[in-house]
Design a protein around this nucleic acid. Sequence first.
DNA 1: AATTTATTCTTGTATATACAGGATTATACA
DNA 2: TGTATAATCCTGTATATACAAGAATAAATT
Lengths: 237, 237
Amino acid sequence: MNKAAVPRYKVIKQYIRDNIEGGSWPVSSRVPSENQLCEQFSVSRMTARKAVDELTQEGLLVRSQGLGTFVAELQPQSPLLEVRNIADEIHERGHNHSSEVLSLEEIPASETVAISLELPETSPVFHSIIIHYDNGRPLQREERYVNPRFAPDYLKQDFRVQTPSAYLSRVAALTAATHVVEAVLPTQDIADSLVMESHAPCLRIIRRSWCDKGVVSLAKLIHPGDRYRLGGHLSFT
Amino acid sequence: MNKAAVPRYKVIKQYIRDNIEGGSWPVSSRVPSENQLCEQFSVSRMTARKAVDELTQEGLLVRSQGLGTFVAELQPQSPLLEVRNIADEIHERGHNHSSEVLSLEEIPASETVAISLELPETSPVFHSIIIHYDNGRPLQREERYVNPRFAPDYLKQDFRVQTPSAYLSRVAALTAATHVVEAVLPTQDIADSLVMESHAPCLRIIRRSWCDKGVVSLAKLIHPGDRYRLGGHLSFT
DNA sequence: AATTTATTCTTGTATATACAGGATTATACA
DNA sequence: TGTATAATCCTGTATATACAAGAATAAATT
């Protein structure tokens, strides 16, 4: 019986990622060549190459024929943090981030939600409204519609820790997303929940994420003065 | 001498892409198996697999062990259109899109621009301000800062056609981008150029795109009531 | 000393092969 | 007829090898 079900190239991938994210291999530095890797891990060159290949496509590494492979100068956020907002960054910087769950329930899909999640109308979907705070200051109102196939135990989760990675690990491995962004004036109740004046412009973001399992929809309202950041690796031919 | 410098796996990639984007292979349909492809193109399985591999990582295909490879149900936008805004979509739908160039010149980089483009201060950068219209209605004010290494003939270009693909083909193959989005109240001159009232909230988007050649920075102001769309394929582990 | 050439290391492309493991279908058995 | 088994087709992982092509360095030549 095989002791390790983890493919070898993934082990190498993680090794490289750890060294980069741990700071051992600084930006622009050369990573071990494919030959060095396959000697170090006792694998064939094609296996080592596959690890480097995928990290390159993820934007973490840059290859240069004849020179070597290097840690990308402008690293995209870690894959799991690819879609993040300023509140998340504040959280990572050690500020006091907290969340308040305004609503958390299973509801029948409205027409709009059903279309967005590609489900039949009135089929059950999970719905949550969360307010994010930084040191007591409201930052963001987040409304999620989750396809139950994604996260059957979504309603049972612990919302006290709300980092994006925690969220994503609960939901699923989303592989693609679209964002539609607009500037709006908030309704009165939203203005109240974000503790802002109703004539101040705030950001409204509707995000649809999906993988083969289904679609997750998410609407955010960002407090005036705060910004939203999107990062990612775009694949070109 | 080799007639074709194009690698074989890229030929296969293009063949698959053509069939999908041309509509021959509808969404959810099965694409030829790796064995079929390597027989059809007289290549080894690993070569055919590489083509399918990359298209899968780009989100165009979905693999399923034991079943086959399928056209992804929710296709990301074509790679070259990965970052687009509503104005672009209107343009594609056949509306009357036009642009007005307010400014087009080479300027020394200010401190902010220099940092953003990762260039020394006062080094020359290309700068343009463009207003986009749809049927005469102003949609968007776009301000670009371009690293000259990207597009040496940027100032000579024809701005009459401003589709994203035309833009990108002139600039370079950008491989990654971050967007920072916020809702703002416009200054008076911007409100004038967008023909809007200065108390209406509009969208401000700062985009940094890059590849190994350098960085392009772009600031957009979106007319109130219009939205901005971001789509893409996110790579997860 | 300066220039050209050759060597070496790197990534890029490609082949042929092998077995594991998931999913479906056909077959044999009870 | 129903159930278990086998065959088959697919993707997933992995090896060993080969040559091309870019980039830097060492060596040879002028």
